[in-house]
Every structure is written in structure tokens, then in C-alpha cells.
Design a protein around this nucleic acid. Structure first.
Length: 596
RNA sequence: GGCGCCGUAGCUCAGCUGGUUAGAGCGCUGCACUCAUAAUGCAGAGGUCGGUGGUUCGAGCCCACCCGGCGCUACCA
């Protein structure tokens, strides 16, 4: 065993789900589930974890979606914040503070960073040709423009790229350009924006990224490619929904801060909000202005550039300056940026518009959260795209989760409950007894190390192997037969088996918090192994109150260590952990998706 | 077009810096068991690692080219 390290300060930073609509299971596979596994493991290990995030509510897509729904952007954001927050709570994603980007606090922090970067000369004014919708006067991002490709003549070319010939385009060059929102012809005008001077950070970024040997290779290589050709990037937009630009000449009714600029700041602002909410306003500095802290970001691969280039550039540029930094130390750069690939749905790329998606809330209305968490971890898009199929989901649920771990819990508890009603008292332990106890105990280090490396598939597989060890032991010892012939030996065997189950429940707790809690209770233990989440209404004067998703994780009784189950503890009547899904499930769900 | 990834048993995937008979889970076959949501355990069949050509004493792991699948290409989020 390694020497027990001192508790570490760990920031877990899952990407902020965008509030244009509900999220599908591919989204949560990228940011939420891996981040939560990581956070729960470190809390059980005794580290001081701060996991913050929220809904990302600014930007054009929210405005477009709001228009289509006939509501204001704020109303749409309110609605989707509530939907997404419920999804995450129901999935058991253990945020310390899941907030939103429309809070007053977030705007203040964003403006402080923006102002500081501007004062330091990292935000420079430039003019560029921009597309506007004549109907609304709003900016029209390249992707919202389509027309005929000037190269191949394809009619459905988008403003940034032609899907037919693959060439990159400039919307100005499109023949017969039109807005995909309302079909109107965009106007192109000169417009002035503040650009983040990314080339100024190129050297430092390249050096920093090169040194990151713990990053997944695709993240590191991709990022190195990016920093070699950096250009200044506009950080303001011609819209009226977003954080107000704290610079003269950028009036709030026409210019706002670019949504990605404020979204990445969310990690910092939500930490500050959390500190405020718990009544220790400076506590966030222990994570952000402490070089010994470690910061882990989780997201889908499409977010890499913002987390390995733009956000680090902003952090480097801000340094320890500005009102919030207050000269008390440089803001911490990411320790690791754990990017997932994509989840496809039955072989097709998830698409909101074509409704090729399995929405989290819809999924959870028919199935339990732990089997989904299991699937997204065991078959997740860790190193390459992975396909979600209902057939595979049913199989993983029935033939792996239920058959191996669920059945072990059930057979062990049923035997013990019926014959003893409590945790039986062991007598002499045989070699087989100590062997299985040691085998399961050994999994703690293995599973923990794999989680720490971000190898979640391997980690949950290792936990399953430990469960197999216990199944082998139970099969060999056959306590159901011993009960009739040698009650004392039966008591010992069942004690050993229960103790293994008690350990395994902890090994599975980061992945399967709900069922681990159920096992914890059935074994007669008290308290929260890895407790529940809750909503809390917060808000400062001068702003509408909002609800944050949080939890009282300090009260957890679980610890990342083998069980020392107390004999004599009263058992609860066992009930199955997982529902067996009938084969018809597959057909029903495919029909629901419109595939047959 | 540029950059990058992938192609290993029926399926889903591991194989870290090249080194003895290529691994796991599921599926399949047989046996055992019957406490358990017919769930478990044991044994076994089944790949020469997309193709070709190289480097090397030795390559799934390095190099070149080819075939097939995919992603990214940042002023969409």
C-alpha cells in the first residue's frame, strides 16, 4: 500500500451544458458522468473536492431557440436550466455548485476578467466584416448562413464550409446567401470588436501544453496543432443577450461579450459563488490561487480548444490581477483536460434537429440512473467514438451489471438474511476466506489509480473483476449447503462474503451511487455512503433568486478502504438492485426512435 | 485540401517505452451447482492482429504506400 497522502484540493470542472434545449445521453457521457466518477472517488479518498458548473445561457443559439418558442431568451434559459438541472440531479451528478451564467456574480467576474485583459492590452480592437440579419439586426454567425457554394455550385453550403466539396468558405463569397433562421438575405457590414490577442500567448501555451504528459494524446496533439497557428479571436458580438462589455464604446444594446468567453469563466465564477453560498467568501482561493491544487476539466472533444488554448490564455493574461484576483496569486491553469469522443445513437450521429437523440429526462423516465451510468462508463467514448444501441444497453444491464454484481449482492444477502438475520459472527478464517478478502481489498488501489488516470472503462472493469472473485468464492464455499451441515462454518463464509460485498459497494460507489447506497443500507449500515443531492435557493440583493444544485458531501460516511463489517449488525430484507430488462425493450425503444 | 484517430476472436474493446504459446467481457459449446432476478462456477472452441513492402536477432506495437471507417479544421455552442 502506498503511504496515505495528505488531502488534496481538487477542482472538478465539468463543461457547462448549453441551455438551448435539453441534453441527450451523449452530452452527459462527455462531461457529467466521468466528472462525477472522478469527484466521488476523490471525496471517498478524503480529498477536498470542489465540483462546479452550471448552464451556459448566453449566445445566439439561445436567442434563436427562444424566438422559435415565442419566449424571451431569459425565459428559455430559465426553462432549460430547470430541465438540465433536474437531469443532472436525477443522474446523481454531485456538484458542489451547479449554477448558471445569468447570475449577477458571474457577470461581475466575467467583466473583471474582461476589463483586466483589456487594461493589460490583451484585448485589442479590430474591425471585420460581419453578417447581420436584416429582420432582427442581430449578428448572423457563419453557421446560420447558407447559400450556393462558389466552388462546386452545391446549393446547401453553409457559411463556414461546404458540406458537398468540403472546402472552407467565407460567407461573403456565397452565391445567393440567406439566413437559415428566416430565409432573409444577410447584410454584410463593417463592425468593430475586441479581439483576444492569442498570438501573444503562443509561446507560453506551447511550452505549457508540451509539458503535459498526463493528457490523453489526442487532446495534447490537437492542442499543440492549434497553438502553432493562433490568430486573434473576437471576444465581443453584435447582439444584446450576454454579459455587458465593460469598455467604453461598446453599448449594451448592441454589443455583448462572446458566449464562450464568459462560459469558461464559469468555472471560476461558480467557485466564487460556492464560497459565498457556504459563508466562506475567500474559500475559492484555496483552489484557484494555490499552486498545489489540481484542476480537472471534463468535456466532449468539440470543447477542447476552449479549454486548452483560450481559457488558459485568459488565465495567463489575467494572472493575479483584477478585482477578484486581488494580487493574491496567479489563477491556476488546468491540470488535465479530459475530453471524450462522441456517442452515436444506433450508428447515427446524434442530431437535435433530426431528433436522433436519446434525451436524459426521457431515458430516466423509464430506466434507473445507475444502469445508464454503468453503460456510459463501461462502454463510454473514452478514446474513440462509441455507439449507443439499445441492444447493448439491455445486454450490459442484464448480463453484466445484474448477473455479476447485482446477483452477488442478492444471493449473499438472501442467504445471510434468511439464515441469520444479521451479519453472522465469523470463527477461524481459512486461506480461502482471507484470500478473497485480500483480493477484493487489493482492488481499491487498482480501481483508484485507474480513475485517477481517467481510465474509467478499465476502472469499472477492475471493480467487476473484484465482484467475480466474490462470486467464485461463494460458489466454491456453497454456504447454502453448509447451513445444513456446519452452521458455524456457514456463518464464517457468509460473514466473509458480506464483508466483500460491503467493500465492493464502495468500489462501485463512484460509478453507481444509488445502488451502492442501497447495498449500504441493506447491510445494516447507517448514514450516507455517498449522499443525496439537493437544491438550494440562493441569490444576492438586486437579482432574482436562483436554485443551485448542491449537496452536503462532508457528511458522507464512506471511505475508499476495505470494509471491516461489524458482526451482529442487523440486516435489512434484501431486494433486487437492478431490474432485468426484457428483450422486447430493444424493439420498443427502436420504435420510439423511429428505427425498426 | 490540412491535421489527427481508428481498423486485434461472432460482438464491444485491452494490449504502456517492440521480446517467450496475442488478452478481457459478452456470446457460443460442454460440465457442475441450484442460495440467487435461470443469476453463478469450471472447462473449452474461436483471432496471426485491414493489405503490401520494409527496418530489426525479433513487430499487433517502428517506417512507407494502399484499402476501409471516422473526427477536427477554432469568429456554432
Amino acid at each position: 500500500m502506498k503511504e496515505r497522502a495528505l488531502p488534496e484540493k481538487i477542482l472538478v470542472a465539468p463543461a457547462w451544458p448549453y441551455a438551448s434545449g435539453p441534453r441527450h445521453i451523449g452530452h452527459v457521457a462527455g462531461f457529467a458522468v466521468p466528472a462525477d466518477v472522478f469527484a466521488r472517488y476523490h471525496r471517498l479518498k478524503g480529498d477536498e473536492v470542489l465540483m462546479v458548473s452550471g448552464t451556459d445561457e448566453h449566445g445566439t443559439p439561445v436567442m434563436v431557440s427562444a424566438d422559435r418558442n415565442g419566449v424571451s431568451p431569459r425565459e428559455l434559459a430559465d426553462r432549460n436550466n430547470a430541465v438540465i438541472r433536474d437531469d443532472l440531479r436525477n443522474l446523481g451528478i454531485s456538484y458542489d455548485c451547479f449554477t448558471r451564467t445569468t447570475t449577477r456574480n458571474h457577470h461581475l467576474v466575467t467583466q473583471d476578467i474582461f476589463r483586466t485583459l483589456h487594461e493589460k492590452g490583451y484585448l485589442v480592437e479590430r474591425s471585420a466584416l460581419g453578417a447581420f440579419s436584416p429582420a432582427t439586426g442581430r449578428t448572423l454567425p457563419d453557421r446560420y448562413i447558407e447559400g450556393t457554394c462558389p466552388i462546386c455550385g452545391f446549393d446547401g453550403a453553409r457559411g463556414d464550409q461546404c458540406d458537398n466539396c468540403g472546402n472552407q468558405l467565407d460567407p461573403v463569397d456565397l452565391i445567393d446567401p440567406r439566413s437559415i433562421i428566416d430565409g432573409s438575405t444577410p447584410e454584410f457590414r463593417e463592425t468593430t470588436h475586441l479581439f483576444l490577442d492569442l498570438p501573444a500567448f503562443a509561446g507560453r501555451l506551447e511550452e505549457w501544453i508540451s509539458a503535459q504528459d498526463t493528457w490523453r494524446p489526442n487532446v495534447r496533439n490537437f492542442s499543440l496543432g492549434l497553438v502553432r497557428e493562433l490568430k486573434p479571436r473576437a471576444m465581443t458580438r453584435d447582439i444584446d443577450w450576454g454579459v455587458v462589455v465593460p469598455v467604453d464604446g461598446y453599448p449594451a444594446d448592441t454589443k455583448r461579450i462572446y458566449v464562450w468567453f464568459d462560459a469558461v469563466i464559469g468555472y471560476l465564477s461558480a467557485s466564487i459563488e460556492w464560497a459565498h453560498n457556504v459563508g466562506r467568501p475567500d474559500a475559492w482561493r484555496e483552489w484557484w490561487q494555490n499552486p498545489d491544487a489540481r484542476h480537472f476539466y471534463f468535456m466532449g472533444k468539440d470543447n477542447i480548444v476552449f479549454h486548452t488554448v483560450i481559457w488558459p490564455a485568459m488565465l495567463l493574461g489575467y494572472g493575479s490581477g483584477g478585482a477578484f484576483g486581488a494580487g493574491r496569486g496567479d489563477l491556476h491553469l488546468p491540470t488535465n483536460v479530459v475530453a471524450s469522443e462522441y456517442v452515436t445513437m444506433e450508428g447515427k450521429k446524434a442530431s437535435t434537429s433530426r431528433n436522433v437523440a436519446i434525451w436524459v429526462n426521457d431515458f430516466l423516465s423509464r430506466y434507473d440512473p445507475d444502469p445508464l451510468r454503468y453503460y456510459l462508463t463501461a462502454a463510454g467514448p473514452e478514446t474513440q467514438d462509441s455507439d449507443f444501441t439499445w441492444e447493448e444497453f439491455v445486454r450490459r444491464n442484464n448480463d453484466e451489471l445484474l448477473a455479476n454484481w447485482g446477483n452477488l449482492v442478492n444471493r449473499t444477502l438472501v442467504n445471510a438474511y434468511r439464515n441469520f438475520g444479521e451479519v453472522p459472527k465469523p470463527s477461524h478464517l481459512s486461506d480461502a476466506d482471507s484470500g478473497v478478502i485480500a483480493g477484493v481489498a487489493g482492488a481499491f488501489e487498482e480501481v483508484g489509480a485507474l480513475i485517477d488516470e481517467g481510465r474509467f472503462r478499465a476502472a469499472i472493469a477492475a471493480a467487476m473483476r473484484a465482484s467475480t472473485l466474490a462470486n467464485q468464492y461463494v460458489a466454491e464455499q456453497a454456504p447454502w449447503a453448509l447451513v445444513k451441515t456446519d452452521r458455524e462454518r456457514a456463518a464464517t463464509v457468509l460473514y466473509v462474503a458480506l464483508r466483500c460485498v460491503d467493500s465492493l459497494k464502495t468500489l462501485f460507489a463512484p460509478f453507481l451511487p444509488f445502488t451502492s447506497q442501497a447495498v449500504h443500507e441493506m447491510l445494516g449500515n447507517d448514514g450516507w455512503l455517498a449522499g443525496p443531492l439537493e437544491y438550494r435557493v440562493v441569490g444576492e440583493e438586486g437579482e432574482p433568486a436562483h436554485e443551485v444544485l448542491t449537496g452536503d458531501y462532508a457528511s458522507w460516511v464512506g471511505a475508499w478502504a476495505p470494509s471491516e463489517l461489524a458482526p451482529g449488525q442487523k440486516l435489512q430484507e434484501p431486494r433486487p438492485l437492478f431490474r432485468k430488462l426484457p428483450p422486447e425493450t430493444v424493439g420498443e425503444e427502436l420504435e420510439r426512435l423511429g428505427i425498426s
